[in-house]
């Protein structure tokens, strides 16, 4: 079943077209890779879908409902959640309180219920010592907290913007397994942005490739990675 769909979605910043007529869709239970060179528009695309910025043209549909210009907090309530490439912990709230926010405001749970759910979520992600300041967390813990915070919305669609960046090989492996388990158990549609192709290969069922804001290829990773346009986009970006 299609959870999320964009039709000709575009957004410019002054002269630059950051996202250019992108149409795509995501199904329940699907893990979709979103790849492309630096500056391709991946984060902007997620910002458009989550309502952090508004599109110039095009349409966004969530479970058949038009949400193109819906405010971000309402989309969070409907079931769209995300993490941030540049992490934004709420530094004046403790670890568990950070996770409670989504439960309280996106779901409307009482504080007590939110605390219980947040503790469960943290447990599920292997986070301990939940009353710590966020400044005391390791990188892996911060990344897990970001995921827990997004999951506190009890979303149906989740975007992870470079959550693996900065982790070592073991930590990455650990987090890949965690994301797979979470997605499976919750039947989530997950959009994953990563620059490490090993992660994309292992984690995703399908990928879309953005280059200069345009969607240039789509399909299983094995297939797309042989696509000459994609190869060129990456080599061009690297050169």
């Amino acid at each position: 079943m299609t959870k999320l769909k964009t039709i000709g979605l575009s957004r410019r910043f002054l002269g630059l077209v950051a996202v250019n007529k992108v149409s795509f869709s995501m199904d329940e239970g699907e893990i979709l890779g979103i790849i492309g060179p630096n500056g391709a528009g991946k984060t902007t695309f997620i910002n458009l879908i989550s309502g952090i910025i508004m599109p110039g043209e095009g349409k966004i549909e969530y479970k058949g409902q038009d949400i193109t210009y819906m405010p971000a907090h309402e989309r969070a309530r409907l079931g769209i959640a995300r993490t941030y490439q540049l992490i934004h912990p709420l530094e004046n709230l403790s670890l568990i309180e950070n996770v409670m926010v989504g439960s309280i405001f996106a779901r409307g749970h009482s504080m007590r219920e939110a605390r219980r759910r947040a503790a469960d979520l943290c447990g599920e992600l292997g986070l301990k010592d939940l009353d710590r300041d966020t400044s005391k967390l390791t990188i892996l813990e911060v990344k897990k907290m970001e995921i827990a915070r997004a999951l506190a919305n009890e979303p149906e669609v989740l975007f992870l913007d470079e959550v693996m960046a900065g982790l070592n090989a073991d930590e990455t492996k650990d987090l890949i397994a965690t994301v797979q388990r979470i997605a499976r158990e919750r039947k989530l549609a997950v959009g994953v942005v990563e620059h490490v192709m090993g992660v994309i290969r292992e984690l995703t069922h399908r990928v879309i490739v953005l280059e200069a804001g345009e969607l240039i290829a789509e399909g299983p990773y094995e297939e797309v990675s042989k696509n000459p346009r994609v190869v060129e986009a990456y080599l061009g970006g690297a050169a």
Partner: peptide, 21 residues
């Protein structure tokens, strides 16, 4: 407290967690 602290710390995160700023 959760709403106001979230808004003070980071409005973008707050919105993404469903806070109507």
């Amino acid at each position: 407290r959760f709403a106001l602290t979230a808004i003070r710390n980071n409005e973008i995160s707050a919105k993404s967690s469903g806070v109507n700023i």
